[in-house]
Design a protein around this nucleic acid. Structure first.
Lengths: 230, 230
DNA sequence: CGGCGTTTTGAAACTCATCAACAAGTGTGG
DNA sequence: CCACACTTGTTGATGAGTTTCAAAACGCCG
């Protein structure tokens, strides 16, 4: 983690864009520009909450762990997204960890200033509430999927999700490279199972893998896998 | 569903208690007192959102369905709780259904007034945001549990949750009667499996069932079942 | 008493996790 | 540049945990 004096990009950070003019100087004083290397931890589950992270560049995974080695990836974040907001609430410890998936560029706001802003900045509060509401819907949809969908359906769903969120490059590959382990953690299964299912999908010509990149060749068939059980 | 002219109890409804004085008359004009019988649907997943429900009395289950007959109970609500807030967000359709588990007493606020209040009432907005944040944490904890805990642990967790949320009567029975089907839907398993696990718990003298009521006799052992795998 | 829904139990089928072993890359230091 | 350790990818065999199907036992009400 490296600090420097730059403020964050006004385009991509919700707090900056919604900051009321009178507070801009205070915001500038309180925000820190942090950088994290691939694999570095932004914060760890169980740690006391010290602030909120706005992603300016790079990708982050947000995960909850369980026992030794097991984890569940709850969400991915990219530029423009917020991370660490899950610490808001009754207990002041992060309920999740966040790890940089590549070099990451963060605008960090300490908790005190964040709380103060919430009390004063109505637009920001409202945007944040909407954001929470959407995340809650998303979370509960995923919950149902984890319970009722077989692994193949969950992986199909995950791939379509990733494609929607991160987009594709000129050749149709998803703009996101994930280890199989991360795919497994995201779909709530094991490394081996995730691997086998992905192999199946390749055999069936539904997806193509080149190096670490994945391309969805037959989105219709993937979508069918999602619905098969419901 | 029956309507009458009573406003809702000021003690138990968040919107009423946080309503700014100047808005009280408008609130009185816009709120409706509704009653639902056991088994009645407050609203159905997929329907357009028409407002928010504040529970004054009775218990409600909030559930998402999947295919024919399968459902996942996402949450229970009792007096003082909000239902229907999951409709707030991008799409204006309820992402869940809500069903009365017993005779229920509701203070209903139509969406237009609710939205207007959000724009003006900072305290309410803030309370609501906190509520969402807490729900999100809860949801993601449950998500991890559904993935990584065996059914027995999930049922243990569910029972402890219910006991904490609804309390117990003088004889130690949880103030909440659920069908086995609902327990199954809440823990993401089937009727038969839920039944078998509950039988085990009775055999092991961890819980007692009398009629439709459940009492936790050995909370320590239940808690251990939760943690066993993590 | 006979029907009907819920509870209870048994057994088979299946999905998926686990374990184990090995191959194929990836990086590191000599 | 090669040898080494180390991570990541690959595959098969096995078993535990759950779902599913089916059927018997039970309670309840007309």
């Amino acid at each position: 983690m490296k600090k420097d004096k730059h403020g964050c990009d006004l385009q991509s950070c919700m707090l900056c864009t919604l900051c009321i003019p009178a507070w801009k100087p205070a915001l500038a004083a309180h925000r820190q520009h942090l950088t994290f290397k691939k694999g570095e931890l932004l914060f760890r589950e169980g740690e006391p909450v010290n602030g909120i992270y706005f992603v300016n560049a790079g990708k982050v995974k947000v995960h909850k762990h369980w026992g030794e080695g097991k984890e569940l990836i709850v969400r991915f974040a990219k530029d423009g997204d917020i991370v660490g907001h899950r610490g808001v609430g009754s207990e002041m410890v992060y309920p999740v960890s966040a790890t940089a998936l590549e070099a990451v560029n963060i605008c960090f706001i300490d908790m005190t200033f964040f709380q103060a802003t919430l009390k004063v900045n109505h637009d920001f509060l409202q945007a944040l509430m909407m954001f929470y509401a959407t995340e809650l819907q998303e979370s509960e949809k995923n919950m149902r999927n984890l319970v009722h969908m077989p692994v193949k359906g969950r992986i199909a769903h995950a791939l379509l999700n990733l494609q929607r969120k991160f987009g594709v490059n000129e050749e149709g590959y998803i703009n996101m490279t994930l280890s199989r382990q991360d795919i497994a953690s995201y779909t709530g299964t094991t490394y081996e199972t995730a691997f086998r299912i992905m192999s199946d999908l390749i055999q069936e010509h539904i997806i193509i893998i080149s190096g670490k990149s994945i391309a969805v060749k037959d989105p219709a068939r993937l979508a069918r896998l999602e619905l098969e059980a419901g």
